[in-house]
Amino acid sequence: MSETYRLAELKDAENLLEVTYRAYELIRELGLHWPAATADLALIEDNIATNECYVLEVDGTIVATITLSKEEEIKKISPLPFIKWFAAHPDYSNRGYGGKLLDWVEEHIIAGQLGSTAVTLATAKKHPWLVQMYERRGYERFMELDQQNGDGIMYLMKKTLIDKPQFIQRG
C-alpha cells in the first residue's frame, strides 16, 4: 500500500468533489452553512487554485483532503495559518487517513515550510464530535463567533506546533 501526500491539482477536482460531498453529509444534516458542504465543481476548482489544497492518496485514490487558506479575511481574525475543508472519504473511515494528512500538513507544511509555531481552524459548537476530536489532537478554543447565519457558535481553535520558531540556515 502506497501513501502519497501532495498538493491537489485541477485534474483532481471531480474526485475532491466526491470526497468532500460525501464527508460533509452530517454538516448538511446539521444545517451548517459551510461552503465545502454544498460545493460544486467550480467551487472545488476555485479552492484548488486559490488556496493550498492538500490530498492523501492511497494506492492512487484520494482518501483525505485539507486546505491551508490563503484568504486575507482570515488573517484579520488570526495571523496564524488557518486550515479548512478537512475531509476524509467515508469509504475509508476509521483507518486514520484524515489524521495522517492533518499531522503531515501541521508538521511538514505549517511548521516545516512556513516555520509557524501554531495553526488555527474553526468548527461548530453544535457538531456532535468535531470539537472533541480537535481537542484530543491538541487544539484549544480561543474565540467564539456567531456569524448570525444559523450556524450558532463557532469556535476558533488553535494548536501550538512548536515552542519557538525554527530558523533555517541558508548558504
Rank of each mutant, 00 (worst) to 15 (best):
M1F: 11
R6S: 11
R6V: 00
A8P: 05
L10F: 05
V19C: 07
Y21V: 06
R22A: 02
R22Q: 09
E25D: 06
E29L: 06
E29N: 07
L30M: 14
W34P: 06
P35W: 10
D40Y: 07
A42V: 08
A42Q: 15
E45F: 02
E45C: 04
I48A: 00
A49K: 15
A49R: 14
T50V: 13
N51I: 06
E52K: 13
C53E: 14
V58E: 01
T67A: 02
T67P: 03
K70C: 10
E72S: 14
K76P: 06
S78Y: 11
P79L: 00
L80T: 05
P81M: 03
I83P: 00
P90I: 01
Y92H: 11
G98V: 00
G99V: 09
H108W: 07
I109R: 07
I109G: 07
I110V: 15
G112M: 09
Q113L: 10
L114A: 07
S116Y: 05
T117N: 01
T120Q: 11
A122Y: 02
A124P: 01
A124H: 10
L130H: 09
L130E: 01
Q132F: 06
M133R: 00
M133T: 05
M133N: 00
E135K: 01
R137D: 02
R137G: 01
G138Y: 08
G150M: 08
K158R: 13
T160H: 13
L161P: 05
I162F: 04
F167M: 14
I168V: 15
